[in-house]
Protein backbone atom coordinates (compact mmCIF):
# COMPACT_ATOMS: atom_id res chain seq x y z
CA UNK A 1 0.00 0.00 0.00
CA UNK A 2 0.98 3.66 -0.10
CA UNK A 3 3.48 4.91 2.43
CA UNK A 4 1.91 7.50 4.72
CA UNK A 5 4.43 10.14 5.68
CA UNK A 6 4.24 12.15 8.91
CA UNK A 7 3.23 15.76 8.36
CA UNK A 8 4.91 18.54 10.35
CA UNK A 9 4.27 22.25 10.60
CA UNK A 10 7.12 24.73 10.18
CA UNK A 11 7.42 26.98 13.25
CA UNK A 12 9.98 29.50 11.97
CA UNK A 13 11.46 30.64 8.67
CA UNK A 14 14.55 28.69 7.60
CA UNK A 15 16.97 29.87 4.95
CA UNK A 16 18.81 27.02 3.24
CA UNK A 17 22.60 27.08 3.29
CA UNK A 18 23.35 24.30 0.78
CA UNK A 19 21.72 22.81 -2.31
CA UNK A 20 20.65 19.68 -0.45
CA UNK A 21 18.53 21.72 1.95
CA UNK A 22 15.22 23.44 1.23
CA UNK A 23 14.04 26.78 2.55
CA UNK A 24 10.98 26.92 4.79
CA UNK A 25 8.43 29.50 5.80
CA UNK A 26 6.60 29.55 9.09
CA UNK A 27 3.29 27.72 8.65
CA UNK A 28 4.43 25.50 5.76
CA UNK A 29 3.36 21.86 6.02
CA UNK A 30 6.08 19.33 5.15
CA UNK A 31 6.11 15.54 4.89
CA UNK A 32 9.00 13.75 6.55
CA UNK A 33 10.80 11.03 4.59
CA UNK A 34 13.70 10.35 6.96
CA UNK A 35 14.50 11.46 10.51
CA UNK A 36 18.28 11.46 10.96
CA UNK A 37 19.37 11.47 14.63
CA UNK A 38 21.83 14.25 13.84
CA UNK A 39 18.86 16.63 13.69
CA UNK A 40 18.59 16.99 9.91
CA UNK A 41 15.36 15.56 8.52
CA UNK A 42 14.71 14.81 4.84
CA UNK A 43 11.36 16.21 3.85
CA UNK A 44 9.21 17.13 0.91
CA UNK A 45 7.34 20.36 0.42
CA UNK A 46 5.18 20.31 -2.71
CA UNK A 47 7.68 19.45 -5.49
CA UNK A 48 10.80 20.21 -3.43
CA UNK A 49 12.79 17.69 -1.42
CA UNK A 50 15.71 18.27 0.87
CA UNK A 51 17.14 18.40 4.38
CA UNK A 52 15.73 20.73 7.02
CA UNK A 53 16.47 21.19 10.75
CA UNK A 54 14.11 19.15 12.92
CA UNK A 55 14.13 21.97 15.46
CA UNK A 56 12.07 24.12 13.06
CA UNK A 57 9.23 21.58 12.88
CA UNK A 58 6.38 20.50 15.13
CA UNK A 59 4.11 17.52 14.53
CA UNK A 60 0.81 18.48 12.92
CA UNK A 61 -1.02 15.99 15.12
CA UNK A 62 -0.47 16.86 18.76
CA UNK A 63 2.21 19.57 18.84
CA UNK A 64 2.19 19.27 22.64
CA UNK A 65 3.17 15.63 22.46
CA UNK A 66 6.76 15.05 23.52
CA UNK A 67 8.59 12.98 20.93
CA UNK A 68 12.00 13.12 22.56
CA UNK A 69 13.24 10.12 24.49
CA UNK A 70 13.29 10.43 28.27
CA UNK A 71 16.51 11.73 29.83
CA UNK A 72 18.95 9.15 31.18
CA UNK A 73 20.56 10.79 34.20
CA UNK A 74 23.09 7.99 34.60
CA UNK A 75 24.46 9.00 31.23
CA UNK A 76 25.65 7.00 28.25
CA UNK A 77 29.35 7.31 27.51
CA UNK A 78 30.26 8.94 24.22
CA UNK A 79 33.52 10.26 22.77
CA UNK A 80 33.75 13.48 20.79
CA UNK A 81 34.88 12.87 17.20
CA UNK A 82 35.08 16.58 16.47
CA UNK A 83 35.72 19.64 18.63
CA UNK A 84 32.98 22.24 19.05
CA UNK A 85 33.09 25.66 20.66
CA UNK A 86 29.88 26.79 22.37
CA UNK A 87 28.04 29.64 20.65
CA UNK A 88 25.07 29.84 23.02
CA UNK A 89 25.12 29.98 26.80
CA UNK A 90 23.36 26.61 27.14
CA UNK A 91 25.96 24.80 24.99
CA UNK A 92 29.21 23.12 26.08
CA UNK A 93 32.65 23.44 24.45
CA UNK A 94 34.59 20.20 24.00
CA UNK A 95 37.84 19.19 22.32
CA UNK A 96 38.30 16.17 20.06
CA UNK A 97 38.56 12.86 21.92
CA UNK A 98 36.85 13.89 25.16
CA UNK A 99 34.66 11.36 26.96
CA UNK A 100 31.26 12.65 28.04
CA UNK A 101 27.98 11.30 29.40
CA UNK A 102 24.95 11.80 27.16
CA UNK A 103 21.96 12.38 29.43
CA UNK A 104 19.30 13.48 26.93
CA UNK A 105 19.10 12.57 23.25
CA UNK A 106 16.97 15.31 21.71
CA UNK A 107 15.53 14.89 18.22
CA UNK A 108 16.84 18.29 17.17
CA UNK A 109 20.36 16.84 17.13
CA UNK A 110 21.65 18.88 20.09
CA UNK A 111 22.07 16.35 22.87
CA UNK A 112 22.51 17.25 26.53
CA UNK A 113 25.91 16.02 27.70
CA UNK A 114 27.76 16.11 31.01
CA UNK A 115 31.50 16.47 31.49
CA UNK A 116 32.47 16.68 35.14
CA UNK A 117 30.45 19.50 36.70
CA UNK A 118 29.52 21.02 33.36
CA UNK A 119 26.37 20.26 31.38
CA UNK A 120 25.27 21.66 28.02
CA UNK A 121 23.97 21.02 24.53
CA UNK A 122 26.42 19.51 22.00
CA UNK A 123 25.95 18.43 18.36
CA UNK A 124 25.09 14.71 18.27
CA UNK A 125 26.91 14.34 14.93
CA UNK A 126 30.19 15.04 16.75
CA UNK A 127 29.64 12.17 19.22
CA UNK A 128 30.36 8.46 18.98
CA UNK A 129 28.92 5.90 21.38
CA UNK A 130 31.63 4.48 23.65
CA UNK A 131 29.52 1.64 25.08
CA UNK A 132 27.64 1.19 28.32
CA UNK A 133 28.89 2.95 31.41
CA UNK A 134 30.59 0.73 33.99
CA UNK A 135 28.58 1.25 37.15
CA UNK A 136 31.09 -0.44 39.45
Amino acid sequence: GPIILDTYRVIADFEKTSKHEIGLHSGDLVEIVEKNPNGWWFCQLESKRGWVPASYLEPLDGPEEAEDADPDYEGELHVTIQAYKAEQEDEISLELGETVEVIHKLLDGWWVVRKGDETGHFPSMFLQNAGKKDKY
Binding site: P53, S55, G109
Partner: peptide, 22 residues
Amino acid sequence: SIKNPPQNPPPRPPAEMRKKIG
Protein backbone atom coordinates in the same frame (compact mmCIF):
# COMPACT_ATOMS: atom_id res chain seq x y z
CA SER B 1 17.69 8.61 -3.69
CA ILE B 2 18.34 10.54 -0.50
CA LYS B 3 21.68 12.27 -0.40
CA ASN B 4 23.68 12.28 2.80
CA PRO B 5 22.54 14.89 5.33
CA PRO B 6 24.58 18.08 5.73
CA GLN B 7 27.84 17.54 7.60
CA ASN B 8 27.42 20.64 9.75
CA PRO B 9 25.27 20.69 12.90
CA PRO B 10 21.71 21.86 12.25
CA PRO B 11 20.79 25.31 13.55
CA ARG B 12 19.57 25.48 17.14
CA PRO B 13 15.83 25.86 17.62
CA PRO B 14 14.49 29.41 17.73
CA ALA B 15 15.32 30.80 21.21
CA GLU B 16 11.78 30.54 22.57
CA MET B 17 11.55 26.87 21.56
CA ARG B 18 14.75 25.68 23.23
CA LYS B 19 14.41 23.04 25.87
CA LYS B 20 15.77 23.95 29.26
CA ILE B 21 18.30 21.59 30.77
CA GLY B 22 17.24 19.85 33.95
